[in-house]
Design a protein around this nucleic acid. Structure first.
Lengths: 197, 197
DNA sequence: CAGGTTTTAGACAGACCTGTCTGATATGGT
DNA sequence: ACCATATCAGACAGGTCTGTCTAAAACCTG
């Protein structure tokens, strides 16, 4: 039964934990394998034993984990609400919690894309992430009784991106509240008076 | 020899032109000095003759130029309008033109910050850029007859950042129009009915 | 044309980075 | 106890990167 889950504390898990901290906080290109190995307390051979694809595969897994964790966090926040409008606003509340964390340094995928080559694993991961974001707001707005759900979804994506970027660049969690207010304004117009703009 | 197109300016100018193209399109860390030298058709010694500070100084100058050019472009767009509301919307129109350019790859300062160490020249340049952005929207909203100009300015910064990030990540210039519409909505509420939200 | 400035080509050092390889050593299931 | 799996330590090769240096050539400008 080698298919058992790797025990906590395995070289693989330590490598991924160290990668997550280092790649996210300092950037993928600026952090070398040796830094990860040292932080994880893992021998070099174990890296290539667990990740035959080398650094690329490590980066790919790091980003896939980030995607999964964030997706779960957002969806948990959404699922606590029943009202379609509140479900949308819950996304911005979750962003606010993210921005308040001391280690927040922006969106891992925006950062990865900023330093990535066109067909790299980073770019592919970023594209997957963006697909999910659009899918997310697409589904949330389609549950609304509004005239142009697609247009609204794109507006919300812009607010999501704006909140994240402003929070990162200006080191202020207030960006979440600001974008949430704008989202509320959009939603009150969309689901309020049937007269569209 | 290959000296046909060679004298298109001093070594310094050619270096800056090549830096601008390469650093912006591929990222600062991923582009080495040798790539810049080859593209600029400049000898290595000339780089250190013109930029004694090496790559750091080249990067610093590249970012300072980007800042200056963009500032001028935005301010030119603003100055073509007299009405305070239109002056604000002009910023988003200018963004739309930027996004439509085939070489658009996001905000040079957001990208630089994503791959930069805390006290690097990139970070300092990014901070200067952010100061200017806030100053810009601060001045534009203070010319408005509205109750909370500072709050409005922050909202506009979020819209500016959201437009830029969405345009980059999703390769769509539509982000400018979307954010412009949201800005219009905010401005119509701010300068319209005196009742604040 | 004389002399300081600018540019060129390329070798070189020193640092870092990824990935490979070897061989010893735990670890865990049966 | 056995044996495959997993991990360790570290040397090593090959690549890239920044920055220095030399010595010659081109460019201005007075």
């Amino acid at each position: 039964m080698t298919a058992t889950v790797k025990k906590a504390g395995s070289a693989r898990e330590r490598l991924l934990a160290a990668s997550d901290e280092l790649f996210y906080s300092e950037g993928i290109h600026t952090v070398g394998i040796d830094r990860v190995l040292e932080k994880a307390n893992v021998a070099k051979g174990s890296l290539y034993y667990n990740f035959a694809g080398g650094k690329d595969e490590l980066v790919e897994t790091y980003l896939a984990n980030r995607h999964g964790v964030w997706k779960d966090t957002v969806e948990r926040g959404i699922s606590a609400q029943a009202d379609p409008v509140r479900r949308i606003l819950a996304v911005f509340d979750t962003l606010g919690e993210l921005f308040s964390r001391p280690d927040f340094r922006g969106c891992a995928f925006m950062n990865a894309a900023a330093e990535a080559r066109p067909d790299s694993v980073e770019m592919l991961a970023a594209e997957r992430f963006r697909s999910w974001i659009h899918e997310l707001f697409g589904e949330l707005t389609s549950a609304l009784d509004t005239r142009e759900p697609d247009r609204l979804a794109l507006q919300l994506v812009v607010l999501y991106d704006g909140a994240t970027t402003t929070a990162q660049m200006d080191h202020t969690a207030a960006a979440a509240a600001v974008s949430r207010e704008m989202a509320e304004l959009l939603l009150s117009r969309a689901s309020g008076p049937a007269a569209g703009g």
